[in-house]
Computed example of a mutant assay.
Amino acid sequence: MSVTLPAPGRMEGRTVVITGASSGIGRAAAIELAALGADVVVVGRNPERTRAVAEQIGGRAYLADFERLDDVRRLADELNRDLPAIHVLANNAGGIGPKTETVDGFGSMFQRNHLAGFLLTNLLLPRIVATAADAPPASVRIIQTASAAAASGRIRFDDLDTKKGPWLAGWRAYGASKLENVVFTRELARRLAGTGVTAYAFHPGFVASGFGNRGALVSFGQRFALSSEQGAEPLVRLAAAPDVPAPSGNYFDRLKAPGRLPKQADDAGVAKALWSVSEVRAGLR
């Protein structure tokens, strides 16, 4: 049975952290959520754009490059120091790019799209769970920007960095990382059961934003793409809807759940294995 995300409600008194908020759907969501009354924390890599968005909405700016895990750790330290409560964490940073390796030694798309958000979430989790103890049930949420590319993705534990096989302009690595977003969300929901914190992933639609060099075919398709404001609508609703009409762990295709996913997305063994290897790679154990 399909469900549809309801319209957002007011957000006064709630703190929302959005990564990748200096441009695209992250910026659009930050503007909309601030207009709904939220205290929005703008996280980005580009200093000028990040600070400009924060100034525009009366929010706070924090800088971090997700291709450096030390940046993520520093960011988490700063947020835990400065924010007495976190009602919504939106892991929105990511994109598609060339075949490169981060300073931490991992494939850039695996780290930027999955591992950095996994690390940040875990480092902020005690504060988020504590926030839920004093908030209305299911109003504290962790949101993951995934993609319909997850439907064609495959998680290969022998090649998480996509070093083997054809690169295909990055689409194999991107699809795998977006499936990792969904699988991470489902395992997170399982681990958070009973805490009052819920977790959701969503596909924003095909959005006309510069999240990476995606090739001539995608560039041609930009003329038919959604605006950043339209792409941000699922994120805004997941953050601000008084109730989400789907169990924690669900994946929304735009405004409807459940979205189409491959079999791996429903494999609890894959979810636990991804969590375990991500803990090791992120230095959590």
Rank of each mutant, 00 (worst) to 15 (best):
A273L: 15
V207L: 04
P47M: 07
G105Q: 07
A76C: 13
G59S: 07
K272W: 04
E12Q: 08
V103N: 01
D70M: 00
S276F: 08
R60T: 15
G210A: 15
Y62I: 09
A130M: 08
R81N: 12
L255W: 08
Q230P: 12
G196Y: 08
V182C: 04
A176E: 14
L79R: 03
N113L: 04
F106C: 05
A257F: 03
R127I: 08
G170P: 13
S108A: 15
F202T: 06
E32V: 00
F157R: 09
L89F: 12
D243P: 00
D70P: 11
A208P: 08
T145E: 02
D77H: 10
V236Y: 06
V129L: 02
A64R: 03
G221E: 02
S248N: 09
T162L: 05
A61C: 09
N46C: 13
E32K: 12
A146S: 15
L75M: 07
G105A: 13
L89D: 11
D267G: 09
F220D: 12
E180Q: 14
V140I: 12
Y174C: 05
A146N: 10
P258N: 05
V88T: 12
P8R: 08
L79D: 05
A201S: 15
P98V: 02
T4N: 01
L123F: 03
Y200H: 04
Y200S: 01
L123A: 10
F220N: 09
P136Y: 00
R14Q: 15
F211C: 13
T162Q: 06
S23T: 11
P8H: 06
T121G: 09
L69S: 03
H87T: 09
I57F: 02
R14T: 06
S147P: 13
Q264I: 02
P136R: 13
L83Q: 15
L226F: 12
A199P: 10
R49H: 14
Y174I: 10
T195P: 04
V53W: 09
P84M: 04
L235E: 05
A246L: 10
R60W: 01
G37K: 09
L5M: 10
R141N: 05
G24S: 06
V218Y: 08
K256E: 14
R186Y: 05
A225R: 02
V280K: 14
A93V: 09
Q144W: 14
R45C: 08
G283T: 08
P84K: 08
T4S: 12
A132Y: 01
T185L: 11
A173F: 03
R223N: 05
Q111A: 12
G44R: 01
L188E: 10
P204S: 07
G196S: 10
A151Y: 08
R112H: 11
K164Y: 03
G13Y: 10
L123E: 04
S278E: 01
A199F: 06
D39P: 00
G194D: 06
V182P: 06
E48L: 10
S147G: 10
A268T: 15
R254F: 01
A52I: 00
S219V: 01
